[in-house]
Write a protein that binds this DNA or RNA. Structure first.
Length: 341
DNA sequence: GGTCCACAGGAAGCCTTGGAGT
DNA sequence: ACTCCAAGGCTTCCTGTGGACC
C-alpha cells in the first residue's frame, strides 16, 4: 500500500464521522423534530442502507437537553433480548450488569431507574433483533413507563413494521413512521464531494472519479469506503481510472467493515459465495454454498441449520441478495447472488 | 395422482456460562 | 463449594413447499 499523501485529515472519510450539515435531509429532520415536540412517543425510521438514518438521529439526540437519558442500541451487535437489555441497563445506570441474570430482573431495574427520568431508546438495525426474540422485547419496552420512555426503531429492511410485529406489540408502540428515500446520483456526488473537500488535499480528486463512484453506488457508506481506499492507494491525484482499479479492493474493505462484529463463520460463508460466483457465475444454490463452506472451514464447522441463519445475517447486511423458492422445479431453496458496488 | 427435488425454518433439547442462593 | 436457574449458541429432527415429471 502507498502512503496517504493525498489525505490531509482521514476523519471525514470514516463512515462513522458525522458532518456538521446534511445534504437533502431537512424534511426528515423537520419531521423528527415535530414528532418529538408534539410529545408523540415512538418513531420508526426506515430506508435503504447508507441513506443517513442513523446519522440524522444521532445528530438529533446530541441536540436534546441533557436531562433526557438516551440509549443507543446497535442491534447487529446486540441481537438478543438479553444483550439489548444489558446495553440499556448500562446506559441508564452507568454500571455493567454482567451476564447470568434473568431478563425480568434487568427489566425491573430499568423500569425503576426510568420512572422519573425522560428516556429515549434507539434500536438501530432492528431486523437483527427481530430475527431473534425482538418482538417480545419491544412489547415489554413499550409497556415500560410509557409516559417517560420513547422508542426509536431504525430499519433498512422493513418498510411496514405492522407486518413484522405481533398485533399487540404494534398497537402498543403505535410509532410515527418516517421513510428515507435513496439518494440520487447527484445527491451522492454532493455528499461525497463535501467529505472529500474536508479530508483530501486540494486538487487531488478528479471530478470524473467522484462522478463514477456516485453513479455506481448511492449507498454513502459504500461510496466513502471506496473513496478512502482509492485515496490510500493514490500518490498524487484520484482519477476515474484509479477509482476503477480499486473497485474490487474497496468492496472487500466494505465487506470486512460490515462483518467486523460477526463470526469467522460469517466471513467464510461470504468467501464461499464469492469463490463460487467467480467459478460458476450467479446465482448459486444454498446447498453448493454449504458444501464450499465445509471445505473452507476444514474443522469446527457449524451445522447447515446454523449456517442458514448466518446466511440470513448476510442478507440483512445487504452483502448478498436472495431469491426464495418455496418448492417447485428447484425444490425449496434460496438462489444467492452477492451484491457489489 | 404419486413422487421427487433441495432445502427452509420451527421445535425441542443439549451444552456452556455466569450470577444468586444456600 | 455446591446447586439452581436462565440465556444464548448450537445441533438434531422433522414437516412443509409447489411445480416438474412419470
Amino acid at each position: 500500500m502507498k502512503n496517504d499523501s493525498v489525505i490531509d485529515d482521514p476523519a471525514p472519510l470514516q463512515t462513522s464521522y458525522r458532518p456538521s450539515s446534511f445534504v437533502d435531509r431537512e424534511s426528515e429532520r423537520e419531521q423528527i423534530n415535530q414528532i418529538q415536540e408534539n410529545q408523540l412517543r415512538n418513531l420508526f425510521l426506515h430506508g435503504p442502507r447508507g441513506t443517513g438514518k442513523t446519522h440524522l438521529l444521532l445528530d438529533h439526540i446530541e441536540k436534546l437537553p441533557s436531562s433526557i437519558n438516551t440509549c443507543y442500541i446497535p442491534c447487529r451487535r446486540c441481537s438478543t433480548q438479553y444483550q439489548a437489555l444489558k446495553q440499556i441497563y448500562q446506559s441508564v445506570t452507568g454500571e455493567n450488569p454482567g451476564d447470568g441474570h434473568h431478563t425480568a430482573k434487568l427489566q425491573r431495574e430499568i423500569q425503576d431507574r426510568t420512572t422519573d427520568v425522560e428516556t429515549l431508546i434507539v434500536l438501530d438495525d432492528v431486523d437483527f433483533l427481530l430475527s431473534n426474540d425482538g418482538d417480545s422485547l419491544l412489547y415489554k419496552l413499550s409497556r415500560t413507563n410509557p409516559e417517560n420512555l420513547s422508542i426509536v426503531i431504525i430499519s433498512s429492511q422493513t418498510t411496514d413494521l405492522s407486518q413484522r410485529l405481533e398485533e399487540r406489540t404494534y398497537s402498543s408502540l403505535q410509532p410515527s413512521r418516517i421513510g428515507f428515500e435513496p439518494y440520487s446520483a447527484g445527491e451522492t456526488y454532493q455528499v461525497l464531494g463535501k467529505r472529500a473537500r474536508d479530508s483530501l488535499k486540494p486538487e487531488t480528486l478528479h471530478r470524473n472519479a467522484l462522478t463514477y463512484i456516485a453513479s455506481t453506488t448511492q449507498n454513502i457508506s459504500k461510496g466513502l469506503t471506496w473513496l478512502k481506499t482509492s485515496a490510500k492507494n493514490t500518490e498524487d491525484r484520484i482519477t476515474e481510472e484509479s477509482v476503477r482499479q480499486t473497485q474490487r479492493q474497496a468492496y472487500q474493505d466494505y465487506v470486512s467493515q460490515q462483518l467486523r462484529y460477526f463470526t469467522q463463520h460469517h466471513r467464510l460463508l461470504h468467501q464461499a459465495i464469492e469463490e463460487l460466483e467467480e467459478e460458476h457465475g450467479t446465482p448459486i444454490n444454498t446447498g453448493k454454498i454449504y458444501d464450499r463452506y465445509q471445505e473452507l472451514c476444514k474443522s469446527e464447522s457449524v451445522s447447515n441449520r446454523r449456517l442458514s441463519d448466518f446466511l440470513k445475517d448476510l442478507e440483512l447486511l445487504d452483502l448478498v441478495e436472495a431469491k426464495y423458492h418455496y418448492g417447485g422445479r428447484k425444490g425449496k431453496t434460496r438462489e444467492i447472488k452477492s451484491s457489489s458496488f
